[in-house]
């Protein structure tokens, strides 16, 4: 105790042993490192963000007597102009994103084996999937915007029997008030946009992980936990997409 009270010891900056989870001998309660714990809790809070968005959209949609049929709205396909393929593109997008998620899981497993080449290979495939998904989304957005859809204007409106009819582009100038429920565009662009932002961030994170893997940073560090953490985020993006897919495209 005496030396603690010594003024010099107190005021000087003392060189200290490095703190870590195992200091003192107590194990972490969940056998999960602090970095992964943080990522998990961040994802938990992000789940609340997305639920906030989705339930706002849900409440608004429930308060409407009529809503456009997604099978009609989302029927465009790249390179197949004028051919109607209901839910075609979005099914491809879903497949791409889920496969990309699988590739990243494979990268994580290879990381556990310290297989640098394996990690890099699967991560590369995962990034390709992410970029392909973003490309599809960009096409879909521009397709919808080309048709005259905006966040506050909906060209899809109810026909006499409740079917979904598209307002011709030429008619749009003559109808200043949105013929269909305007919140269709608002919530679609808002929520898929926010999800797309997450995908973009995830792609950037995976690219960083890929570069560091190729540099051998993780190999020298002795573990690929960073790939695992970024992977958690990437799967979360996939998880959100599953729900966006359900509420915007299927129901």
């Amino acid at each position: 105790m005496a030396e603690l009270l010594d003024e010099n010891v107190i005021s000087e900056h003392i060189t200290l042993p490095a703190p870590n989870n195992n200091e003192g001998g107590e194990d972490t309660p969940f056998k999960v490192s602090y970095g992964k714990t943080m990522m998990w809790f961040f994802l938990l809070s992000d789940a609340f963000t997305f639920t906030g968005f989705l339930i706002a959209y849900g409440a608004i949609r429930m308060s409407k007597t009529w809503w456009p049929d997604p099978n009609v709205v989302f029927a465009g396909m790249p390179f197949l102009h004028g051919v109607n393929v209901p839910l075609g593109l979005v099914s491809i997008m879903t497949t791409i994103l889920i496969l990309s998620s699988v590739f990243v899981v494979r990268a994580v497993i290879e990381g556990h084996r310290m297989n640098q080449k394996g990690v890099a290979f699967w991560l590369f495939l995962g990034i390709l999937g992410g970029v392909a998904f973003l490309g599809c989304q960009a096409w879909e957005w521009s397709h919808l915007i080309h048709d005259g859809m905006t966040p506050f204007y909906n060209v899809y409106h109810a026909g006499p029997e409740g079917e979904t009819i598209k307002l011709a582009l030429a008619e749009k100038a003559k109808t200043p008030v949105s013929p269909g429920p305007p919140m269709f565009g608002g919530s679609f662009f808002g929520i898929t946009g926010f999800h797309g932002l997450h995908v973009s961030i995830g792609v950037v994170m995976n690219i960083v992980a890929l570069i560091k893997t190729l540099n051998g940073t993780y190999q020298r560090r002795g573990h690929y936990e960073m790939v695992e953490k970024f992977g958690l985020y990437w799967h979360f993006v996939d998880l959100v997409w599953v729900f966006v897919f359900l509420f915007f495209y299927l129901i």
Binding site: P29, H235, D238, L239, I251
Partner: peptide, 29 residues
């Protein structure tokens, strides 16, 4: 719709449990 929601929840379960590896963590976690 009910069936589709249930199917989505099932997919979500597999993503969280297998891909995110949560199934293999501690139960309290």
């Amino acid at each position: 719709n009910v069936f589709m929601v249930l199917a989505t929840l099932m997919k979500a379960f597999y993503i969280i449990a297998e891909f995110m590896h949560l199934k293999y963590e501690y139960r309290s976690f």
